[in-house]
């Protein structure tokens, strides 16, 4: 019974946060750009999300006749499924976790690498040259940044001695991993932005060049799933940063542990939005160059130094 309760709790909180982020992002972006943002529907425009949802549900769900129908319908589902599955291994509090697995972090990496398919296949199945260009960019970008995403976590894994996210949080009782693993944290953050293809790294859907990239042909709730999937991805990466580098649910005991976790996650979600508001989009080849020529050597150096220090301190 408790198991069902935990699953329901995780599912409801993730979906609520992802939907609420649409409002939060628009308000915060407006704040950063010195305007008001949505403020007409309900108090402070809070009901804007509900209005948007009602609108998107009643839109015509159009599948283009030239599209590959089965793959076209399947693609948005893959995105939502892989992201929701990953939330199963994230500890919201000490015992508030769906699956405390000893391969938790690998489970996340596997799911994030499967998430690439939704974008690649969505663009291919649309049978549209802009969509195809978007998905070709997406597959190269996400394959590249997946490599650093995995490697940037190796330092954390070595220090915590475990792949289980619960053990990683427990290992941070002595101090957050962001201090010894600062390089890992920065690279994970950059790779996280690239994996969720948010604005500086949204070249798969660069609206200036590619109409809307891989989801040009999508409409109605299928587009809505891509849209909400992006916010769920942001929530996921923020939750992982909070868990892996900032001590997860740990914090002073005058507030419940889950509250600390949500607070840290919310902070990084706001960072995602702030980065979107302030940075321009790089060119495609610049993105690849940054990845392979700067981040890869840095992350390998980080692993080497972490390993060296760990061996040195263990031998003392």
């Amino acid at each position: 019974m408790k198991f069902v309760f935990i699953i329901a709790g995780v599912l409801i909180s993730v979906l609520t946060i992802a939907a609420g982020l649409i409002y939060v992002e628009r308000r915060l972006l407006a704040l950063f750009q010195d305007r008001l943002g949505p403020n007409r529907v309900g108090p402070f425009g809070l009901l804007q999300v509900i209005a948007d949802m009602i609108k998107i549900f009643f839109k015509e769900d159009w599948i283009p006749p030239f599209a590959d129908k089965a793959v076209f319908v399947m693609a948005p589902g893959i995105l939502i499924a892989t992201i929701l599955l990953t939330f199963a291994v994230i500890p919201f509090a000490d015992n508030f976790i769906v699956l405390d697995s000893n391969i938790g972090l690998l489970f996340f990496l596997g799911n994030s690498s499967l998430g690439v398919y939704s974008i690649v296949l969505g663009g291919w199945a649309s049978n549209n040259k802009y969509s195809l260009l978007g998905s070709i960019r997406a597959s190269a970008q996400m394959l590249t940044y997946e490599v650093f995403m995995g490697l940037s976590l190796v330092g954390v894994i070595m220090m915590a001695d475990s792949f289980s996210l619960r053990d990683i949080v427990e290992a941070q009782r002595g101090g957050w991993f962001v201090i010894p693993q600062f390089v890992g944290f920065v690279i994970f953050f950059i790779a996280g932005i690239a994996e969720t293809h948010r604005t500086p790294f949204d070249i798969p859907e660069a609206d200036g060049e590619l109409v809307a990239g891989y989801h040009s042909e999508y409409s109605g709730m299928k587009f809505g799933m891509f849209f909400v999937g992006e916010y769920m991805g942001v929530t996921l990466i923020s939750a992982l940063i909070a868990t892996l580098f900032f001590g997860g649910w740990l914090g002073p005991s005058f507030l419940p542990p889950a509250f600390w976790f949500f607070l840290k996650t919310a902070f990084f979600i706001c960072m995602f939005i702030l980065i979107r508001a302030s940075l321009p989009r790089p060119r495609y080849d610049q993105l690849m160059e940054l990845g392979w020529k700067v981040l890869l050597p840095l992350v390998l150096l980080n692993i080497l130094i972490t390993g060296g220090v760990l061996i040195y301190t263990h031998s003392l």
């Binding site: 690998l106 690498s113 499967l114 690649v120 291919w124 995995g150």
Partner: peptide, 19 residues
């Protein structure tokens, strides 16, 4: 091995094939 099967084969090599 199960996790590596997903990450390496299903997640990386097959993406290259589709690419």
């Amino acid at each position: 091995s199960a996790a590596l099967e997903v990450i390496v084969y299903a997640g990386a090599i097959m993406v290259l094939f589709i690419f």
